[in-house]
Simulated assay, not measured.
Amino acid sequence: MTNEITEKLRKASEGLLMMSESEYPFEVFLWTDQGQNNLTNQKLLQLTTHPLETLIEEVELDYLFHNCAEEKEWHDEGQKQDVQKFQTLIKTLKDTLADIKVYRLGTVKIDVYVVGKTPSGDLAGISTVLVET
């Protein structure tokens, strides 16, 4: 079941780049047996191998994708297709994971983790990088 979820996330995020000052692809992750307890900031930093003093900001899923998943009238055909892919990615996340949280770790080069619980008690999701100077 969990493999099915990570495969769906992989397919939904394939070929997409997160837009910021730099464009990074998405990576799917699975943290086995980590969904029983609430994910603390300290646990998140351990799972992602970040230093304990790393700044963590939590944002809404829709906020993370607000520039990517909304069609604008000036978009060309390729951009419109990307918007649809981002909408599919968001739907896939919401359909396959429970209790989704979005964490931004660090400043300037920000590691982003979209984390949710699988039915089997694992944590899974997608990660990417944002560059904000």
Rank of each mutant, 00 (worst) to 15 (best):
N38M: 12
L39H: 05
T40F: 11
T40Q: 11
T40W: 07
N41Q: 12
N41V: 09
L44K: 00
L44I: 05
L45I: 08
L47H: 04
H50R: 15
P51A: 15
L52H: 08
I56F: 04
E57G: 03
V59K: 10
V59M: 03
D62G: 05
D62K: 14
D62Q: 12
Y63G: 03
A69I: 02
A69D: 09
A69V: 08
E70T: 13
E71M: 11
K72G: 08
K72C: 06
K72P: 02
E73W: 12
D76P: 07
E77Q: 13
K80F: 05
Q81L: 14
D82A: 11
D82Y: 04
Q84I: 00
Q84D: 04
K85Y: 05
F86K: 06
Q87S: 00
L89E: 01
L89R: 04
I90C: 00
K91Y: 10
T92Q: 05
L93N: 08
L97H: 08
I100S: 08
I100D: 09
K101V: 03
Y103A: 02
R104L: 10
R104I: 00
L105R: 06
V108A: 11
V108R: 14
K109C: 08
K109N: 09
I110S: 04
I110N: 05
V114C: 07
K117L: 02
T118D: 07
S120H: 12
L123D: 01
A124H: 05
I126Y: 10
V129N: 13
